[in-house]
Design a protein around this nucleic acid. Sequence first.
DNA 1: TTATAATTAAAACGTACGTTTGAATAAATC
DNA 2: GATTTATTCAAACGTACGTTTTAATTATAA
Lengths: 205, 205
Amino acid sequence: MTPTTDTKEQIISVAERLFAERGFAGTTLRSVVSEAGVNLAAVHYHFGSKEELFRAVVVRLARPIVERELTLLEELRQEHEVPSIEAILTALLKPNLEILAQDKETLVIRAQFMGRCRTEPEPIQSIAAKEFAASTEAFLDMLQRVLPEQSRSQLYWKFDLVIAALIRVQAEAGQPFALLRGIEPADVETATEQLVKFLAPGMRS
Amino acid sequence: MTPTTDTKEQIISVAERLFAERGFAGTTLRSVVSEAGVNLAAVHYHFGSKEELFRAVVVRLARPIVERELTLLEELRQEHEVPSIEAILTALLKPNLEILAQDKETLVIRAQFMGRCRTEPEPIQSIAAKEFAASTEAFLDMLQRVLPEQSRSQLYWKFDLVIAALIRVQAEAGQPFALLRGIEPADVETATEQLVKFLAPGMRS
DNA sequence: TTATAATTAAAACGTACGTTTGAATAAATC
DNA sequence: GATTTATTCAAACGTACGTTTTAATTATAA
């Protein structure tokens, strides 16, 4: 019998890829377990349902991102009374790109999954949104402080567009014309800078 | 027997809404025909398959957009040797928002559908991408002319981000904090301007 | 009016899905 | 080693899906 943590992680890893490629509804549990080399009932034993499996995949990827984002934001807050827009956006975006770049093998899969889970039909989309809620709120608050002349409404849709851009960069990661092409630290640095350079002027306008 | 054009249009209209809400895989033909008040076989008679139904929905919405975009672009080309980035982006984005604003009833549905079809798993996403291919190419060419110092690669991902922003604006249309909140011509005008104002500086940078 | 074509209806085909069940096996605990 | 708990297995449950088939009905053409 395969060790437990391997079974669970195997299922999550295969599910991550298939959910990314086919979406939630288009991915069958039978295809997941077939590729993971485990039994169909294992999904229900370990995760309880297809939806909880999806949640497990989201959590594995999103938690470290959100933690890192919040840590960077806190550091910003302590270093500067009024951080720059560029610094805030970097704190927001970089963890998202860094995590993708951990492994060439999983770069595209993770990127696609990140994009996928934010565009899924409900109730799946909410699963991901909840995981990012703390980060969303913290960054909106910081932006409001830095840009007090903008209405909350304005900040809201601009923030939304920043996230949309991030999703797109993730979705295209690893492609020939993509902003994030590789997994070197320099690749992440460049991609983050260029994305911030694209978005910051619009945030201020 | 209901007249043919009504049956077909009814099916397309219901399908548009359900595909938007649930995605391609999450929408069943039985739910579509049930709400359209027609028979299941009608889908196959009129469209041949579920995928062709999806295509029919895309075509109904995308064709007029692309035509309008290309028309505006041609007008721009004839009026200016070197059009401004703002004018180009307006020509690109405004038809997409205008068509949503034709009817308060369908604003959110159409917006969601537009966003949905660009984020679907393959092979569905390609169906929509093909419909926009002519427009994509024409605008990239124009941008390249106006920004000759930028590489094609750079223009490509920036254009991609513009489209991502558009998708997001569409997806949020009609919501309280949305950029496009209503269907008056002034609403479209404002939304287009603000979106262009957000994106143009980044295009130039 | 009759014949032909178009459209709709209902049932069925062939296949598939997430979830549940009960048994078997493996691992952990005493 | 015996017992308990955890995990895996295979089959089945209850339901559903897109597509196909055949017949009936309606619309159009001659």
